[in-house]
Design a binder for these strands. Structure first.
Length: 290
DNA sequence: GTAAGATGCCGAA
DNA sequence: TCGGCCTCTTACA
């Protein structure tokens, strides 16, 4: 493992920016929830009403902690019976943590104390689970490059025996957890891998390099709250080009850059649909099959 | 394997 | 005002 910065202790107290729900966002949220509420008795409500019974069960109990596994967020309350709130933001869910604000919009879940409030809107899932139910969910979650306890060899075994494309396998949350459409496209570009390469054609050393890169990139995302994947020589400053201005923010090689010239070779970046998602890649740079 | 649907928000019209 | 989306599930070929 090369030069892993110690980023998991970054300050998170306020997480308010519109963030992209890939794994790094969920880890940031877990950190923000812990910074704001861990160890405290909190008020739990469901202003929108769709989590009202569960919120009432938790209201006034102590928030023990929050953790992320891939794109899953788990908040642990010291309450009787089912006491784990399992949240998945899906595509459009938003969770904001910061100083107390008035409730606005469809707030499914609000956690608050005297100074902070956390509001969850539009989640794919927000449900109350027992320990056993959570264990069942966790058993389906793959290796998360952000977690220190992740096992990249477990992911490798699934990749190595699969004929599916590596561009699909990286997005399979039961194999690599937390990798989304941006990290998928970018890590394959950085290693010059053809996204259509079957998993069983990939060399073990290539997988190890991809994994170590995901660890670095995704932990950087946890620290900064954005996805930046370009190497120093390809930054806007180094290349004298304008910075990316869309709401995705970070500097990337291929994600949503279809029709524009590749930052490395100038070839037009392409887009296609792979397993129902847009895949972006440079057909010249990405020819490796091992 | 492909398509539609869920939900909040942004930015293109 | 409306389409697309950084995700995932369900239904069907």
């Amino acid at each position: 493992m090369v030069g892993l910065p110690d980023l998991l202790i970054a300050p998170f107290h306020h997480v308010r920016e519109a963030e992209l729900p890939e794994g790094h966002v969920i880890h940031r949220l877990a950190g923000a929830i812990e910074d704001a509420f861990a160890g405290e008795e909190v008020t739990v409500t469901s202003p929108q009403g769709r989590f009202a019974v569960e919120a009432a069960h938790l209201n006034g109990s102590r928030l023990r902690g929050a953790q992320a596994w891939g794109k899953h967020l788990l908040i642990d309350f010291a309450a009787e019976g089912a006491h784990l709130v399992h949240i998945h933001l899906g595509l459009i869910g938003r969770f904001t943590v910061g100083p107390i604000t008035p409730v606005h919009g469809q707030v499914r879940l609000r956690i608050e104390d005297a100074v902070s409030s956390a509001d969850l809107r539009g989640p794919q899932w927000c449900r109350l689970l027992s320990d056993e139910e959570w264990e069942a969910v966790l058993s389906t979650v793959g290796s998360d490059p952000i977690r220190p306890d992740a096992d990249p060899e477990k992911a490798w075994r699934a990749i190595h025996r699969s004929t599916r494309a590596i561009g699909v396998l990286l997005m399979d949350q039961s194999i690599t957890a937390g990798v989304g459409n941006i990290y998928r496209a970018e890590v394959l570009f950085r290693h010059r891998i053809d996204p259509m390469t079957p998993g069983n054609r990939l060399a073990h050393a290539t997988w190890q390099a991809i994994w170590e890169d995901l660890v670095v990139l995704m932990r950087r995302g946890v620290a900064t709250g954005r996805i930046d994947t370009v190497r120093p020589e390809h930054t806007p400053e180094a290349m004298g080009r304008p910075p990316r201005l869309d709401r995705h923010g970070g500097e990337v090689y291929v994600y949503r850059r279809d029709g524009q010239p590749c930052l490395v070779c100038g070839t037009t970046v392409r887009r296609t649909n792979l397993a129902g998602r847009h895949l972006f890649w440079c057909p010249r740079c990405q020819r490796r099959h091992r």
